[in-house]
């Protein structure tokens, strides 16, 4: 819980914050879709180099981004390690009874590059975006109001409930609780989680009553001042050129 939100950020005043939130969301989506259709590892490597170079520009710390990438790898590891052996094709090397196929290796390198590139795009364009401004962006992109309100409320209460979890966890540690694989741990953690949910529910009841007292009818007026300006147009233009170049290079390669 300790290094949670926006911790990838080095400084608070990245140039990206000057952009309209909608521009960032749509740009991230366009860039990721573009990455998904790339077929040549060379083009993907170029794109990877570009996005790594953009990390400092987005106000992120490279070290922290790479460490975070390593955390995200969990799902990929199984696929990337197994595919070279399981995909049928021309064998290029043997490890014991297993044959390493060229097609499998190609596929696994493609997956590794695509997935990491997409995550880098998420990091550079969206991390450090205020949950409130991302919710506003969703609303102005036509997402239903109920869903936007859910996102707004959850993002707000995740921090508060996270603090509550930290307090409960501290009190467990003060009683010398060390999690192990045991019946005691299972019961303790279940009571911890149960208590957290009970507290969340009671907080929800209090918040609900307080909001009804203040005549909440289920709607928030969303006030947001950000508009699509010259800066956004320039950013979109540059990004479109870069994506077009990479796509072109991919088709030629």
């Amino acid at each position: 819980m300790s290094e949670t939100f926006g911790s990838l950020r080095l400084s608070g005043n990245a140039r990206l914050d000057a952009l309209d939130a909608r521009t960032r969301v749509l740009a991230a989506f366009a860039a990721i879709v573009c990455v998904l259709v790339l077929r040549s590892p060379l083009a993907l490597l170029c794109a990877l180099a570009i996005s790594l170079a953009l990390i400092p520009l987005a106000g992120l710390s490279i070290g922290r981004v790479l460490r975070r990438l390593a955390h995200v790898e969990g799902f990929l590891v199984i696929l990337v390690v197994l595919l070279p052996f399981t995909v049928a094709g021309a064998p290029i090397a043997h490890i014991g009874p297993l044959a390493l196929s060229q097609e499998g290796l190609h596929l696994s390198v493609l997956l590794l590059l695509r997935a990491n590139l997409s995550i880098l795009i998420l990091f550079t364009l969206l991390s450090g975006m205020e949950p409130v401004s991302s919710a506003h962006a969703l609303a102005r992109l036509g997402v239903p109001a109920k869903l936007v309100h859910l996102v707004l409320f959850s993002a707000r209460y995740v921090t508060l409930i996270g603090e509550e979890a930290r307090r409960l966890h501290d009190s467990l540690r003060a009683r010398a609780f060390v999690p192990r694989t045991s019946r005691h741990t299972a019961r303790t953690l279940a009571h911890f989680f149960g208590q957290l949910l009970v507290k969340a529910l009671e907080r929800a009841e209090r918040v609900d009553e307080a909001m009804r007292c203040r005549a909440f009818n289920g709607r928030f007026p969303l006030l947001s001042t950000s508009t699509f300006g010259a800066r956004d147009a320039a950013f979109v233009g540059l990004l479109a050129c870069a994506l077009a170049l990479i796509l072109l290079a991919d088709r030629i390669a």
């Binding site: 309100h149 409320f153 959850s154 209460y157 949910l197 969340a200």
Partner: peptide
């Protein structure tokens, strides 16, 4: 609000 706070939980 209830659904949102529980999903935060």
């Amino acid at each position: 609000p209830k659904t949102a706070i529980l999903s935060a939980g």
